[in-house]
Amino acid sequence: MEGPKIYGELFGLPITQTLVNTWIIMAMILVVCAILTKNMQKRPGKAQVIAETIVTVMDGLVGQTMGKDKMKFAPWMLALIMFLAFANTSGIYGLRSPTADLNCTVGLALMTFFMTQFYGLKSKGLGGFLKGFLEPMPFLLPINIIGEFANPVSLSFRLFGNMLGGGIIMALLYSALAGLYFFPVLIPVPFHFYFDIFSGLLQSFIFTMLSMVFISGAMD
């Protein structure tokens, strides 16, 4: 699997395959949401039940992990996990994962990093925030600072490495299957199930859970 193809340029910025695939995934999510929330009534039809279940489960998860007073983060967390779920499993519907590009994962991890710092500053005040680096012992200050920066690095590289590794293994598998004498119909199926579906959904869950833990940890 080579790097993302570049399709052209717009105002000096390259239009890469990652960018185009992200637009396609955004369009898919918008279509799914439009179908699920069309014609909402007090006695829900089947599509509305699915939408309500998703929102309720996510609200429960945010309430459990971050605390009941931080429910304002639930819409962002749901948007994050929906985008990641569609983006990581792109191997199934033939697109190169946008999260197999370090630019995309670093962007998402920086969102979490800036949210952590901003809400930590806002809820603890400048003095409390700076004192937080001196806990539990003052000589741990450089380790705490590096630990703060280690969080977005590990978030982004974990997601990038898992998706790129899965993509390369699938590409190697397909090129190895190209030299067979019979038509290899069912052989890639368990690999797609493990690398695309299981690993993709697990990594999106991990990214969202870690973001929730970091943001709520910085706020108290």
Binding site: R158, G161, F205, I206, L210
Partner: peptide
């Protein structure tokens, strides 16, 4: 268990990134 195992996977993935 799966949450913790996926976090433990990370340094193995770092090694895979350097090898790739």
């Amino acid at each position: 268990m799966l949450l913790g195992a996926a976090v433990a996977e990370t340094t193995g993935i770092y090694g895979l990134i350097v090898a790739l």
